[in-house]
Write a protein that binds this DNA or RNA. Sequence first.
RNA 1: CGGGCCGUAGCGCAGCUUGGUAGCGCACCUGCUUUGGGAGCAGGGGGCCGCCGGUUCGAAUCCGGCCGGCCCGACCA
Length: 565
Amino acid sequence: MSRIYAPTLREDPAEAEVPSHRLLLRAGMIRKVAAGIYTFLPLAWRSIAKIERIVREEMDAIGCQELLLPVVQPAELWHESGRWDVYGPELARLKDRAGRDFCLGPTHEEVITALVRNELRSYRELPVSLYQVNVKFRDEIRPRFGLLRGREFIMKDAYSFHATQESLQEHYEAQARAYGRICDRLGLVWRAVEADSGQIGGKVTTEFMALADTGEAELVHCSCGYAANVEAAEAIVPDHARSHGREELRKVHTPDLRTIAEIAGAFGLDERDTVKTMAGTTEDGRLVFFCIPGDRELNPVKAARAAAGATLLDEEGFAKHRIPKGSLGPVSPPRGTLIVADRSLKDDASWVVGANEDDYHFFGASPGRDFQVDVWADLVVARPGDLCPRCGSGLSGARGIEVSQVFQLGTRYSESMGATFTDEDGQERPFIMGCYGVGITRSLAAVIEQHHDDAGIRWPVSVAPAEAIVLPLSVEGEVVEAAEGIAAGLADAGVETVIDDRDERAGVKFADADLIGWPYQVIIGRKGLATGMAEIKHRASGERESVPLAEAVARVRELVAAGRS
RNA sequence: CGGGCCGUAGCGCAGCUUGGUAGCGCACCUGCUUUGGGAGCAGGGGGCCGCCGGUUCGAAUCCGGCCGGCCCGACCA
């Protein structure tokens, strides 16, 4: 310990908001170099090595082979895939001395596809699955929460190449099972959730979420086992008073009432008794109105899918189409407007909507009589209280940290980059691909989010920088000798052990041991020594036990063995 | 990119309103005492006060610009 470089902080750093960030800084595990960029000090590096070892074991076990791809990647590959122009400012670009364009890899599909297209020619060589553990760089809009959203981070990414969809499916499921085991071994409370399949659609993907209030992702889950990211979840809005009977259409003067909250408030309605209309344009420039329950959020991915890749209008768009923001509705919209409505409104025969005229709304607008709905679709972001798409019970909500994700890519990269093999029938076909990522450094933070208390970190044995620490409480020869004996005995017994032989007072050693969070503390003091006893403190539970000095090594070995995974 | 807040010793902060040449706690160094839950006393070291410019006899303090950081937002009509 005296030689471990772990500069602990007594006070909370001002910049840290979430527990993992605060504790990683205080425990002397990380230091910030720039926004979202960190140095990993020895303790963090030991834990990272353990996470990596678990990940490697699970990857190797399903036949995935490790290699290493470059961080600096030539622009040509990204031009081939088409992502050089699509990726945006998150992609860090640079030039070499000759002025050639390069980027720092935010992900490695291009490089690995370029590799295999030269090396794999026949279906006989497939499937192949390759992985690496490497540094990634993404120039995030807003890095925050320490390691939870950094710009430079460590990731395990695997890529698989298949001749058939069945083969991909099989490996995808093997990866998903491996990811579940990884989460278990890291000591995480987690859920596999249905995830956003992206604007392109048709992709199969699952995210692995460590449940935590500090997580940036919102998810819904059900006792039947269903779980989904709210961005991806099918929304089944429960029935309620929205099923109004048919009324007469009334145009109502609503001066200065723009938002749903204002309209509902002024007329004593519940927000869900109103209809919110949002405007967008389809890929070919057609105006489209999305109508959803007033208390709901539009899901842009669902909106795009329902209406030919539609995106919502910005301020310029409103000006260009000359429509009144805050008073939109499906009744008498501009000529040619596509009306897309959320399917939960189907049973409602009496809508409160904007009149497409400043300061006026319609009450009692009825689909089929006062306007036509062109498309009924699921448009809204799911939320707790909605019904489970599998079993129909009410969904619960939770927040999560996305620690890993598995993804069926299909031929997105192999086709654009000309990566093909010759199939059984002599035909050239693009590889069918999958990719699978584990955020190593994010997982480290996620473990801390789930395993800490006011005093510090409470590492699971599998991820701890070391399994046990020996604390000699005084500098007297006898105590130090006994402590060194125990430490040597533990090391011989195969327990990863450190000893805090600093010339510090007992209180300092206790506080640092709790802060850093070694799973087991073996405390050797003058008092105990007098009766031949050592004390073992279990950091996770706070439990303490007294054991005879001679049995301390065996007892710790037993405890540690039970906690390993 | 928009809004808010903040840059003073390694960390946490005060000083700025009212301009006069920088301070507190922790950490660090030396000595003595202490030694099972972040010790006590005494002494000591450490600062381009984010950067550039302006005002002034004089700027950490007032003004302008820039840079950096943190928080909130960036579909929620």
